[in-house]
Simulated scan of single mutants.
Amino acid sequence: MQKIVLLIIFFISVVIYSQNSTIKYTVSTNKALGDNSKDNTLNDVNNALLNTTLDFQLTFSTKESFYELDELLDDGINSKIASIFFGASKKYYTNVNTKEFLLQALAYGDLYLVSLEKPNWVLKKENKKIGKYTCYKAVTEYTVVNSKGNFIKKVTAWYTPQIKGSFGPRGYFGLPGTILELQDDKILISATEINLLSKKKNEIKKPIKGKKISKKEYDNLNPPLRN
């Protein structure tokens, strides 16, 4: 009888451990790329970005995560423009055990597997509620180099230790909790649906296809459009 009980407990623990959690995020912006009413193309791009949101999903376990576009329901011109700006084709994989931090991305028709580095976070004392979770503020920054010069971009994350894990959207990770909200320069990423130990089979897919390059090599190949 004791063996049966232990077997049942083992089976339940394996099932729970094998279940992955998911967070859905809405990605949007409320900041225009530039202010030039005479540039019709720029106006069209700004109109598309300011009036379009995309949904992404983070699937994670205790050791790894995978972040990608959830589903593109609308294939209109606004969604296509937003897809480029919001990085809809990019997939991010993080494994804290093996120290693999990967971005799978297209550039000029070729697929690349980019090695990422852990962000250099500065933890702040500020906190706020996002839904039922108490979240704490963390900041970091990065440099964008393009034809207009060098620009320092600010990133603000709100993470909660109430959700175990060290993961977040858009390749941001390494905090003592899970990121529920992130402001990456002009892009705002907000958690809209949280499913811990989801009953659905949500697979974490480590990307393996693509030419392996560093983040610096990728940025030189595909310079950021934002400034």
Results as ranks from 00 to 15, higher is better:
21 S>H: 09
23 I>K: 01
24 K>L: 10
25 Y>I: 07
25 Y>W: 05
26 T>F: 06
26 T>M: 10
28 S>R: 03
28 S>Q: 09
29 T>H: 03
31 K>T: 06
32 A>T: 01
32 A>P: 08
32 A>W: 05
34 G>C: 07
35 D>Y: 13
36 N>Q: 04
36 N>G: 02
38 K>C: 00
38 K>D: 00
38 K>N: 08
39 D>E: 06
39 D>R: 01
39 D>C: 03
40 N>V: 09
41 T>A: 12
42 L>F: 07
43 N>Q: 13
43 N>P: 06
43 N>I: 12
44 D>A: 13
44 D>W: 06
45 V>C: 05
46 N>M: 01
46 N>I: 06
47 N>V: 01
48 A>M: 11
49 L>K: 02
50 L>C: 00
50 L>A: 05
51 N>C: 09
54 L>S: 06
54 L>G: 03
54 L>R: 08
56 F>L: 10
58 L>D: 00
59 T>H: 00
60 F>N: 06
61 S>L: 07
63 K>E: 11
64 E>W: 04
65 S>R: 12
67 Y>Q: 12
68 E>D: 13
69 L>Y: 02
69 L>K: 08
69 L>T: 10
70 D>K: 15
71 E>A: 06
71 E>G: 04
73 L>E: 15
73 L>Q: 13
74 D>T: 06
78 N>L: 09
78 N>V: 03
78 N>W: 05
78 N>A: 07
78 N>G: 06
81 I>H: 07
81 I>R: 01
81 I>T: 03
83 S>Y: 05
83 S>L: 09
84 I>P: 01
84 I>Q: 12
85 F>P: 02
85 F>Y: 08
86 F>G: 00
86 F>I: 12
86 F>L: 09
87 G>P: 04
87 G>D: 00
87 G>R: 02
88 A>H: 10
88 A>Y: 12
88 A>N: 09
89 S>Y: 14
89 S>E: 14
91 K>Y: 04
92 Y>C: 07
93 Y>M: 10
94 T>F: 02
96 V>P: 11
97 N>T: 11
98 T>V: 11
99 K>T: 10
99 K>C: 01
100 E>V: 06
100 E>F: 13
101 F>Y: 12
103 L>E: 00
103 L>W: 06
103 L>P: 08
103 L>K: 01
103 L>C: 05
105 A>W: 08
108 Y>N: 15
108 Y>G: 11
108 Y>R: 14
109 G>S: 02
111 L>E: 08
111 L>G: 07
113 L>T: 12
115 S>D: 11
116 L>G: 07
116 L>E: 04
118 K>G: 02
118 K>F: 09
119 P>E: 11
119 P>H: 12
119 P>F: 12
120 N>C: 13
120 N>A: 14
122 V>I: 14
123 L>C: 10
123 L>V: 03
125 K>S: 09
125 K>L: 09
125 K>H: 13
127 N>S: 15
128 K>L: 13
128 K>W: 08
130 I>N: 05
131 G>N: 13
132 K>Y: 14
132 K>L: 13
133 Y>S: 07
133 Y>H: 15
133 Y>V: 14
134 T>G: 08
134 T>R: 08
134 T>V: 14
136 Y>Q: 04
136 Y>F: 14
137 K>V: 06
138 A>Y: 03
138 A>K: 03
139 V>E: 12
140 T>W: 04
141 E>W: 05
141 E>I: 07
